[in-house]
């Protein structure tokens, strides 16, 4: 049987103040630009959507989209939301900002909750991530492959 999945963790250094990064990270006009989500509002408990299907996205259709419910908005430090499809366990994305220098911010993202899935629920994760195969991952691999 498959071993359980560990947290997904990634980080980046941004050459801007923490307050400024917080604004870009959480304010509606900017979130759409970097995250590409739908129906976003920066209020606790609000649900926004990650729609993989670009046609549906253009039509403001959230069917089949990943749901994200904001659970933490602690300015200018922590922004967190759940990440799930209805009926499957909720995973969680937490983004932390730390001022690493006067005008430099260290951003760390942790996507956790994979250990809630039992091996027999693997199929649910697969379905949940399946959109990524076609709309993001595979075109990217294709590009990498074609570049040689």
């Amino acid at each position: 049987m498959i071993e359980r999945l560990r947290n997904i963790e990634t980080s980046i250094e941004i050459n801007a103040s923490r307050e400024h990064v917080w604004k870009i990270l959480t304010e509606p006009e900017y979130v759409v630009q970097w995250l590409g989500c739908m129906r976003y509002q920066n209020t606790l408990g609000h649900v926004f959507y990650m729609q993989q299907d670009s046609q549906k996205r253009q039509a403001d259709d959230v069917s089949g989209a990943t749901h994200c419910r904001i659970d933490t908005l602690t300015a200018p430090e922590v922004f967190a939301f759940s990440w799930y499809h209805p009926g499957t366990p909720e995973t969680r994305v937490e983004i932390q900002l730390k001022a690493s220098a006067p005008r430099q911010t260290s951003v760390t993202l942790v996507h956790s909750g994979w250990d809630q899935f039992e091996p027999e629920q693997i199929r649910a994760i697969r379905e949940m991530l399946a959109g990524g195969w076609s709309s993001f991952v595979l075109p990217q691999l294709k590009q990498a492959a074609e570049r040689g």
């Binding site: 997904i8 990634t10 980046i12 970097w34 951003v107 697969r126 993001f136 991952v137």
Partner: peptide
Amino acid sequence: LAAWLETFWNKKLSALKAL
């Protein structure tokens, strides 16, 4: 897939950085 999801978030953070 998990590794690719990591790449997905890397990409999003890079977009955040650029912005």
